[in-house]
Design a protein around this nucleic acid. Structure first.
Length: 417
DNA sequence: TCTGGGGTCCTAGGACCC
DNA sequence: TCTGGGGTCCTAGGACCC
């Protein structure tokens, strides 16, 4: 069997790089993209210049500004980033049709079997052919989209992911066929994708520090606490899953028993909110947004989940499953009911979120199931939003409308509200 | 110095049915 | 009246990723 060749392509300090394209004065300066200075936000991207001061993504803005007061803090230009993601993907698709967008700044490509297509006399072997192709692709992104990227290549997605980290900044790193174990073994357990702070500390207290130690834990009938994890690491060195099945390089939404995912929106308040009815108002806005996104994607949701975070960071989730719907009013009723029944503490609320999951595609039929067909008013609102964006209209708790932009004619149906 | 937002996946317990 | 084993679905929480 031919060895699988997976490439992980990662855009370097993506948000910072895009901001520098928009404003070249930021080039060479320490830049932090995140929430507003003094807000409750966290760092979403930090330039290499500011990382030397200990600033990293996920850190609170307050902490970052203490470590690097001289840095330029920008809130970020939401809405423009995904356009660059699309442009990068277009470049990648020139090299292989097997491209998956994993996140706004990360892609996986399958080059398995592409060796003959790209073979040149100067390449020594198949590995060298693929590596040269990926180097060329990386340069094409720099040339055509002006964004720096790094790429890792290996036998599985996890190996490729780890290789791409080693390639940073703006490089390519290949784990050659057969060298997977020697690549993994000396690395700390935390380097493996999927092992975070919690698992790391559990492993460490059992005296396991490196992936080599973890991989050589005996498999088999006497399963230790970590044997499943050890098997995951061993599997990453080959093209199979934890249960030994050979698996496809990529899995599509809705394929192989997977689901259509979930859609969620949430918000952390600038200040904790004590008044329940004020929290409910925010919830209604979130439901509005989530249900709109579901309708845009053409899916119905069977499960609705409310997340409630109190001022002391205690966080609860409550969900309810029922008939599939994407209708705002039905979802609003469920979420408000979940909130009223489950806000048991008197404490002020810090954050709320609404998610829909258990998504299904409406079956094509003459009469749509209840909730699949938007009410006339919703339809009119959706139409305006498709043209002008979600924020063009705000729907009040009673269904009343507010137009946030001038020059938009209210839909005729909505005028009766 | 408190700790975002949008996701995925896994686990464990309970209900319910056969 | 007591006693089972599976399988599936639902719920809640947690770990992790970018």
């Amino acid at each position: 069997m031919r060895s699988p060749r997976i490439c992980c392509l990662d855009l370097d300090t993506f948000f910072v790089s895009v901001e520098r394209l928009l404003n070249p004065e930021l080039i060479g300066k320490p830049v932090v993209v995140g929430g507003r200075l003094g807000s409750r936000g966290v760092v979403t991207a930090a330039s290499y210049e500011v990382r030397t001061y200990g600033v990293h993504s996920g850190m609170s803005i307050v902490e970052a500004s203490r470590l690097a007061p001289h840095a330029v803090f920008i809130p970020g230009t939401h809405g423009v980033y995904s356009g660059y993601t699309t442009r990068v993907r277009e470049v990648l698709e020139r090299y292989t049709p097997e491209v998956r967008t994993a996140s706004i700044d990360e892609f996986y490509l399958d080059f398995s079997g592409c060796e003959r297509l790209y073979r040149r006399p100067e390449h020594g072997d198949d590995d060298a052919t693929i590596e040269a192709t990926v180097r060329d692709m990386r340069q094409a992104i720099q040339r055509d989209v002006s964004l720096p990227a790094s790429a890792g290549i290996g036998v599985s997605r996890r190996i490729a992911k780890m290789a791409s980290r080693r390639a940073k900044p703006a490089g390519v790193y290949m784990v050659r066929c057969g060298e997977e174990w020697s690549f993994l073994a000396p690395q700390p357990v935390r380097a493996f994708p999927g092992i975070g702070p919690s698992t790391e500390s559990r492993l460490q207290s059992a005296g396991i520090d490196t992936l080599g130690q973890l991989m050589t834990l005996p498999p088999g009938p006497r399963r230790s606490r970590f044997s499943g994890l050890a098997e995951s690491v061993r599997a990453a060195a080959e093209r199979r899953d934890r249960l030994g099945r050979e698996r496809p390089a990529f899995r599509e939404h809705g394929q192989f028993g997977s689901t259509l995912g979930s859609i969620s929106n949430g918000c952390t308040f600038a200040e904790d909110i004590r008044d329940p009815s004020s929290v409910e108002t925010h919830l209604l806005g979130l439901v509005d947004r989530v249900s709109w996104r579901a309708r845009k994607r053409g899916v119905l949701a069977r499960t609705v989940t409310l997340t409630l975070r109190y001022a002391d960071f205690d966080t609860i989730t409550r969900s309810r499953t029922g008939p599939a719907t994407a209708e705002t009013e039905r979802l609003r009723a469920t979420v408000v009911d979940l909130f009223r029944k489950n806000r048991t503490r008197r404490m002020a609320v810090r954050m709320v979120a609404v998610a829909v999951s258990n998504l299904v595609q409406p079956r094509p039929q003459l009469s749509l199931p209840l909730g699949a067909e938007p009410a006339p008013v919703s339809q009119a609102i959706d139409a305006v939003r498709s043209k002008h964006g979600f924020d063009a209209i705000k729907v009040g708790s009673t269904g009343g409308l507010r137009f946030h932009r001038t020059g938009i004619a209210p839909p005729a149906v909505a005028s009766k509200t």
